[in-house]
């Protein structure tokens, strides 16, 4: 069942503006596909921004963008390339 759903699952991508991030973790906690995690790096303000550890799982739902209080991240649908 999971396999059948997976093929229809929309694909998405997540774009992060590292310098705007304040490291609140909302995007990481509320991503329905667990795409994100805190990265080891610091931005210039000393926060750990998120990075996509599981980019293929992203469905482009943009919940990360909706939650981000700093307008530092958003998700977008990717139109599947037709083979």
């Amino acid at each position: 069942m999971a396999e059948a759903k997976k093929s229809k699952r929309p694909r998405g991508t997540v774009v992060i503006s590292v310098e705007l991030c304040k490291g609140c973790g909302f995007c990481i906690a509320f991503c329905p596909s667990a795409v994100l995690e805190f990265s080891e790096m610091f931005n210039s303000k000393g926060y750990h921004p998120p990075h996509a550890v599981n980019p293929d799982a992203c469905i482009g739902c943009d919940l990360c963008g909706m939650y981000c209080p700093d307008f530092a991240i958003f998700g977008a649908r990717v139109t599947r390339e037709v083979a």
Binding site: K22, G23, C24, F26, P69, F71
Partner: peptide
């Protein structure tokens, strides 16, 4: 960036 603290819900 906005003036709000990390973890503030205002931006949301």
């Amino acid at each position: 960036p906005n003036i709000w603290c990390p973890g503030c819900g205002l931006g949301t």
